[in-house]
C-alpha cells in the first residue's frame, strides 16, 4: 500500500480526521521523543512533552500553513515545550527534584540489555553512555537542541534554523560550540 504523504495527512487532519492524525503521530512519535529525551533526559517528561506537542498540533492544525514541512513545525513545538519544561524544572527548589543518582540508575536499568556477555564490557559501555548523556546534559537548551536535530535527526542547517527560528549562521556557530564541548567532555572516547 502506498503511504500517504504528510501533506495529504495534514489536509485530512484539517477536516478533523482522527485516523489521519493518528497516522502522523505514529510516523513521527519516535523521532519527536528522541529530541525531547535528548533535551530532558527523563523518559516520563519526554513522553509527556511530545504528547502535549501532538495535542497542540491537532488543535492548531487548521492554522498550519503548508509553506513549511510538517515535521519542522512539529519539532519546533517539541523543542519549545522541552525548553520550557527544562526551565521550569531548573526553577524548582532542589528538594523537590528527583535525586539525580537514583534517576540515573533507573534509566540505566531500563536500557535494553547489552548483547555482549562480558560484564566488564557491559559496565564500560554503560559508563560511556552515562558520560555521553551527562555531556549532552551539560549543554544549554539551545545547544542541545541544535546537536540533537543535527546528529540524531540528521536535519539540514536550513531546517534547523527554521525549527529554532534563528539564522543559518547561528545554527553553525551553536553546532560548532556544542561539538567542541562534547569533544572536550568525551576526550579519550572519541
Amino acid at each position: 500500500m502506498v503511504e500517504a504523504s504528510d501533506w495529504e495527512l495534514v489536509r485530512r487532519c484539517k477536516e478533523n480526521d482522527r485516523d489521519a492524525f493518528r497516522e502522523l503521530v505514529e510516523r513521527y512519535q519516535r523521532k519527536a521523543v528522541a529530541i525531547a529525551l535528548g533535551m530532558l533526559h527523563d523518559r516520563e517528561d519526554a513522553l509527556e512533552v511530545v504528547q502535549e506537542a501532538f495535542a497542540k498540533v491537532f488543535t492548531s492544525i487548521k492554522h498550519f500553513k503548508e509553506e513549511a514541512s510538517f515535521y519542522t513545525w512539529l519539532y519546533r513545538i517539541v523543542t519549545n515545550l522541552a525548553i520550557d519544561r527544562q526551565r521550569r524544572k531548573n526553577r524548582q527548589p532542589l528538594l523537590e527534584r528527583e535525586d539525580p543518582k537514583e534517576g540515573e540508575n533507573d534509566r540505566i536499568n531500563s536500557l535494553p540489555s547489552d548483547p555482549s556477555d562480558d560484564p566488564y564490557e557491559q559496565i564500560k559501555d554503560k559508563e560511556l553512555r552515562n558520560r555521553i548523556r551527562a555531556a549532552v546534559g551539560e549543554l544549554t537548551p539551545a545547544h542541545k537542541a541544535v546537536i540533537l536535530l543535527r546528529e540524531v535527526e540528521g536535519l539540514s542547517y536550513e531546517e534547523i534554523s527554521d525549527i529554532l527560528q534563528c539564522s543559518r549562521g547561528t545554527v553553525m556557530s551553536r553546532l560548532h560550540y556544542a561539538r567542541k564541548r562534547l569533544q572536550s567532555r568525551l576526550k579519550g572516547e572519541i
Binding site: 503521530v25 512519535q29 519516535r30 528522541a34 523518559r43 491537532f58 549532552v136 546528529e151 569533544q183 572519541i190
Partner: peptide, 30 residues
C-alpha cells in the same frame, strides 16, 4: 564518532520505550 555515540545513546533509550499507550496519552491531553 561523536554523532555515532550521541545517536546511539538516544536510539537505545528510544528502543526501550513502550509506545503502546502513547496515543491514549495524546487523547487524554486533547
Amino acid at each position: 564518532r561523536g554523532q555515532e555515540l550521541v545517536s546511539q545513546v538516544i536510539d537505545e533509550e528510544i528502543e526501550g520505550i513502550d509506545f503502546s499507550t502513547f496515543w491514549q496519552g495524546i487523547e487524554d491531553k486533547l
